[in-house]
């Protein structure tokens, strides 16, 4: 048996096991370096100088250093939620604000906490508070998420996801 055949879809959280107030597993990235920022900027073809031109970032814009891309940070909080729901639930809604800067040297931890849960149709909805903190505990990307999870013994969450399916008889 090849190694690849042992990889299977990820079992995500099950609604019945979720408790309001619980923390979900965090996702940690870093320490971030200018190379990480360059790699992302190149992958998405972002030419904003504050991500690679130190003199411009600190001089013209008065920033403490070049900045970790907000466009990158958003995917980290999305990954946090997507990892938790796995391939059995669905990360329906994710919203966040870019409130703070992150710079090279930062180690970033995406975190989430369950704020509410309710049954909906044959599935369960769970609301989360989410964010991205650096090693000093400073929050830069606070937000919220709503996910759809299967109930134990219940049907799989429909994919592609159509919100109308939640209320279908």
């Amino acid at each position: 048996m090849s190694v690849a055949t042992t990889i299977t879809a990820a079992q995500g959280a099950v609604f019945d096991d979720v408790e309001v107030g619980q923390d979900i597993p965090s996702v940690v990235k870093g320490p971030m370096t200018t190379a990480h920022i360059m790699r992302w900027s190149a992958a998405m073809e972002n030419w904003h100088r504050i991500h690679y031109d130190w003199q411009y970032a600190t001089g013209n814009d008065g920033l403490p250093d070049v900045l970790v891309n907000g466009s990158w940070k958003q995917h980290v909080v999305i990954q946090l939620v997507a990892d938790w729901v796995g391939d059995t639930g669905w990360a329906w809604k994710i919203a966040f604000q870019f409130r703070g800067m992150n710079i090279p040297g930062d180690t970033l931890t995406a975190w989430g906490r369950v704020t509410d849960k309710e049954e909906r149709g044959r599935w369960g909805l769970v609301d989360l508070e989410i964010g991205l903190r650096n090693q000093k505990g400073e929050e830069s990307t606070p937000g919220t998420a709503r996910v759809v999870l299967p109930r134990r013994g219940g049907p799989p969450v429909p994919y592609p996801f159509d919100p109308a399916a939640l209320d279908a008889p």
């Binding site: 329906w92 937000g143 996801f161 919100p163």
Partner: peptide, 12 residues
């Protein structure tokens, strides 16, 4: 110009 953030609704 400051990017304030996003609210995503994901389908597929």
């Amino acid at each position: 110009l400051v990017n304030g953030g996003y609210a995503y609704e994901l389908f597929r």
